[in-house]
Amino acid sequence: CEQYRNVTISVLIENTAHIDQWRGSRVGAFIDVNPGMNRTGIEQTRMTDIVELARSVEKAGLEFRGLHYYDGQYGSMSELDRTHMAHHGYDQLLAIVNSLRINGMKVAEVITAGTPTFPSSVSYSGFRNSSLFIHRASPGTVVYNDAVSLAQLPPELEYQPAALVLTRVVSHPRKGIISCDAGHKSVSADAGVPTCRVLGHPELTPLSPSEEHLPMSLADGVKTPELGEVLYLLPRHVCPTVNNFDHALIVRNGEIESVQEVSARGREMPLLHVGAVATD
């Protein structure tokens, strides 16, 4: 914050231990509210505790920026059910905002939604009609898009995939099976099998990958792709797939325009003091 004074930097907190490390800094704080996903945050039913935590932020001399609410647990539902559940959660979120205001605390911003509940978030009237705070929806996957997100998002939004993995056929291990050089070190397997779709080839079904190879089954009666043939894969989960690559080819109208470094991938070097002792 001191180095980049024109930049606003904020952190998520869910208890007072998270506050202590930022005392005396210009860092702002959003309270992370758990909407039932049970990954991080303070449970939304603990309204009194949320109010006290906001007070603790201000007592520590930090700026209380608002509330963060990531309702990513509804991705497997139909669009109608997803919207119903998301809007029910937003009703509870607005009750928290109101409780904070009654107790004298301003809520400047409310941040909601990942990609699955993005349409639900922007259609919620309580956000669209509020003059009390700034509402921000925070979908991330829509930047590149992937097979799962395209299945979740309404088709009328007309999103298209912006990132594909190029692979080549490297083996014909037996009749009805081909193998490509796109194992889980290339296309992330965290979303399950199949890990991807093969664009333009509905007759190919990706099977369980190994580290370096992705076997595919071939439908009966269709031509087997040749060795060396190029295929384009649409990952089911693009985020960890991007993290597998050092560089990306930027293509426009079939021509490679540039090669861009994927600068956010991997890990930073550990911050260690000389002579530090490793612990178990």
Rank of each mutant, 00 (worst) to 15 (best):
V222N: 02
E261C: 10
I31Q: 04
P161Y: 04
F118G: 05
Y124T: 07
N145Q: 13
G24S: 03
A248S: 10
Q21M: 01
I9K: 04
L100I: 04
F245N: 00
F245R: 04
T83L: 12
A86P: 02
A162I: 05
S138T: 06
F133K: 05
L233K: 00
I250Q: 12
Y144I: 00
V33S: 02
I9Q: 04
T112L: 02
F133I: 07
P240N: 02
D220P: 01
D32Y: 07
V274L: 14
P206K: 04
K185Y: 11
S125K: 14
V230M: 14
G28Y: 10
D81Q: 13
V222P: 00
V57W: 01
Y74V: 03
E268F: 03
P116W: 04
L150H: 09
S56L: 05
S258W: 06
P194T: 05
A248H: 06
N129G: 11
E14N: 11
L132Y: 00
L150I: 12
M37D: 10
A147G: 10
L164F: 02
L150D: 03
A219S: 15
V107C: 15
I102W: 14
Q260L: 13
V251W: 09
I102L: 15
A276V: 15
V230H: 13
N129T: 05
S138F: 13
L80K: 15
V27W: 00
S131H: 12
Q21P: 00
V262H: 14
I177F: 05
L231K: 09
G176K: 01
N243C: 09
N243H: 10
A248G: 06
V33R: 00
S125D: 15
L100N: 07
A95V: 06
L153I: 08
I177R: 03
H18N: 12
H18M: 06
N6I: 02
